[in-house]
Write a protein that binds this DNA or RNA. Structure first.
Length: 185
DNA sequence: ATGAAGATCCGG
DNA sequence: CGGATCTTCATT
């Protein structure tokens, strides 16, 4: 399998998010097939942390493409994101769900998958793609990829920047009126 | 200092 | 549907 390197994350966040569906995430002894992601853009996206969090803008300035951006949400759940730095197209990809053994819905949500993998703040800022015990490997999603509005945000709800594997049992939330997007190139 | 909001999840 | 439980940020 082909290991993804930082170059993968030097493109448009929506492209990165879409192509990550079907790839396999490895993290300290566990693996999961990514079945749901969301893209967040530095420019023109009011839902992105960069829009309203100075600390996030600092993080982006000080880290390179492919770095893990991990934060605690609601004081309870760790969110696992990957930094995208393509110049005009900086942003993040949030990993929202993975298929994993043994229980199909063990990784069916952004907070659930970090708990499953043991991902927490200690990984924040790490270049995990290049580490021995962590990384992402390219896969091919044969079920088709669908897109829709992002989940749980209050702004920019119109952007269809959530991507998922069609009919996966591990989606955090089912897609409504699934509009299949073209498979990757 | 203090308060509000937040890319969620579980249980009643 | 409310509570958990912590960080960031704006306001006092």
């Amino acid at each position: 399998m082909e290991r993804l390197n930082a170059d993968f994350f030097r493109r448009d966040p929506t492209l990165c998010a879409r192509e990550l569906v079907g790839c396999v995430l490895f993290w300290k002894g566990q693996r999961g097939t990514i079945v749901e992601t969301e893209a967040y853009a530095a420019v023109g996206d009011e839902a992105c942390h960069m829009w309203f969090r100075p600390k996030t803008r600092k993080f982006v300035a000080e880290h390179s493409a492919g770095a893990a951006y991990i934060y605690l949400n609601y004081g309870v759940h760790w969110m696992f994101n990957i930094l995208v730095k393509g110049g005009e197209t900086d942003g993040f990809v949030l990993i929202r769900a993975v298929e994993a053994e043994p229980h199909p819905r063990l990784g069916a949500g952004p907070g659930k998958l970090t708990k499953m993998f043991g991902i927490d703040g200690t990984g924040h800022g790490s270049l995990f793609l290049d580490r021995e015990e962590t990384g992402i490997f390219r896969g091919n999603e044969t079920r088709g990829i669908v897109a829709g509005p992002r989940i749980g945000i209050s702004r920019a709800q119109e952007l269809p920047w959530r991507f998922g594997a069609l009919n996966s049992a591990a989606l955090s939330v089912k897609f409504k009126n699934d509009a299949a997007v073209p498979a990757k190139v």
